[in-house]
Amino acid sequence: MKTSTLETWIWVLIYGGLLVLCLGVFVARRDEALGQGFMLVGAVAAVVGVVLIYVRSRRKSSE
């Protein structure tokens, strides 16, 4: 995978995950189970993005 593609995925996962997490906070006021589901998915996506930053830092530059 190219570094530019990896960087795109990193930022999409981090920002998208945080957006879904915030959405879950607001949804939880009306439906707690659905809100917690949103928060869980958002948190996992953001964590995966952070892990990909670590992976990118450990890769050897092939470009």
Rank of each mutant, 00 (worst) to 15 (best):
M1F: 12
K2Q: 09
K2R: 13
T3D: 10
T3H: 05
T3F: 11
S4G: 03
T5P: 02
L6W: 11
E7V: 10
E7H: 12
E7I: 12
T8A: 07
T8V: 08
W9K: 13
W9C: 11
W11N: 14
W11H: 14
W11G: 05
W11K: 15
L13T: 05
L13Y: 06
I14E: 07
I14T: 08
Y15D: 06
Y15N: 14
Y15K: 14
G16E: 06
L18R: 04
L18V: 11
L19D: 05
L19Y: 04
L19N: 04
V20G: 11
V20D: 06
V20W: 00
L21E: 11
C22T: 15
G24A: 05
V25Y: 02
V25K: 01
F26L: 07
F26W: 02
F26G: 04
V27Y: 00
R29F: 00
R30G: 15
D31C: 00
A33L: 06
A33Y: 01
G35H: 01
Q36F: 08
Q36Y: 08
G37F: 03
G37K: 01
M39S: 09
M39P: 01
M39W: 00
L40T: 15
L40Y: 06
V41L: 11
V41R: 02
G42Y: 00
A43R: 02
V44A: 12
V44M: 07
A45Y: 07
A45P: 03
A45M: 13
V48L: 15
V51Y: 14
V51Q: 13
L52S: 08
L52C: 09
I53Y: 08
Y54E: 13
V55I: 13
V55T: 11
V55A: 12
R56Q: 14
S57T: 04
S57I: 02
R58V: 05
R59T: 14
K60W: 07
K60M: 13
S61D: 09
S61W: 05
S61P: 03
S61G: 05
S62D: 11
S62Y: 05
